[in-house]
Simulated scan of single mutants.
Amino acid sequence: MTELSLFEKTSSYNGVYMTLMVNRMQMLYFAIIMPVFLIYPYMIWMIIIVGALSQISIFMLSKWFTSKYASSGYEGFVDLFGEPMVRLLSFIGIGFILLKVTVITLGYVEVVQQFIFPSLNTNWMILFILLICWYVASLGMDSTIRFIVIAFLFTAPMLLLLLKFPFQPYATIHDLFPLIPYEWTMKSWKSVLFIWSAFSGPEYLVLLAPWFNTRAKILKYMTIGNAFTVFEYVFIFIASLFFFGSHYLGEIKLPVVEMIRYLNFPVFERIDIIFISVYLFHFVFAISIFLLLFYGAIRITLKKSKVQTTRSGFALCCFIFILCLMLLNEWLWKKATNQNILLELEIWAGALTYLFVPLLLFISFKRKVRD
Score class of each variant (00 low, 15 high):
residue 175 D to S: 14
residue 127 L to E: 04
residue 180 I to Y: 14
residue 99 L to S: 09
residue 139 L to S: 12
residue 154 F to G: 04
residue 106 L to D: 03
residue 88 L to E: 03
residue 85 M to V: 15
residue 93 G to L: 08
residue 179 L to G: 09
residue 176 L to K: 01
residue 107 G to N: 02
residue 152 F to H: 06
residue 79 D to V: 01
residue 110 E to V: 03
residue 138 S to H: 08
residue 171 A to F: 10
residue 136 V to L: 14
residue 172 T to Y: 07
residue 101 V to K: 00
residue 149 V to G: 00
residue 80 L to M: 14
residue 170 Y to C: 01
residue 143 S to R: 08
residue 135 Y to Q: 07
residue 112 V to S: 02
residue 141 M to T: 13
residue 145 I to G: 04
residue 163 L to M: 15
residue 156 A to F: 15
residue 129 I to L: 14
residue 87 R to M: 10
residue 139 L to C: 13
residue 95 G to A: 13
residue 101 V to Y: 01
residue 77 F to S: 05
residue 79 D to W: 10
residue 179 L to W: 07
residue 152 F to P: 00
residue 165 F to Y: 15
residue 150 I to T: 12
residue 155 T to R: 00
residue 98 L to C: 05
residue 123 N to V: 08
residue 140 G to R: 05
residue 76 G to T: 07
residue 114 Q to H: 07
residue 139 L to M: 12
residue 81 F to Y: 15
residue 84 P to S: 09
residue 151 A to K: 02
residue 77 F to W: 09
residue 141 M to W: 01
residue 96 F to Y: 12
residue 100 K to S: 13
residue 87 R to F: 04
residue 142 D to N: 15
residue 122 T to W: 02
residue 99 L to M: 15
residue 177 F to M: 13
residue 146 R to Y: 01
residue 118 P to Q: 12
residue 157 P to K: 00
residue 75 E to S: 12
residue 111 V to W: 01
residue 128 F to R: 02
residue 140 G to Y: 04
residue 168 Q to Y: 07
residue 167 F to S: 07
residue 152 F to V: 02
residue 120 L to E: 08
residue 164 K to Q: 12
residue 113 Q to L: 09
residue 90 S to N: 09
residue 97 I to Y: 04
residue 99 L to Q: 13
residue 113 Q to K: 15
residue 161 L to P: 00
residue 87 R to V: 07
residue 161 L to C: 10
residue 143 S to M: 07
residue 126 I to H: 01
residue 120 L to N: 04
residue 118 P to S: 11
residue 101 V to N: 05
residue 82 G to T: 11
residue 155 T to Y: 00
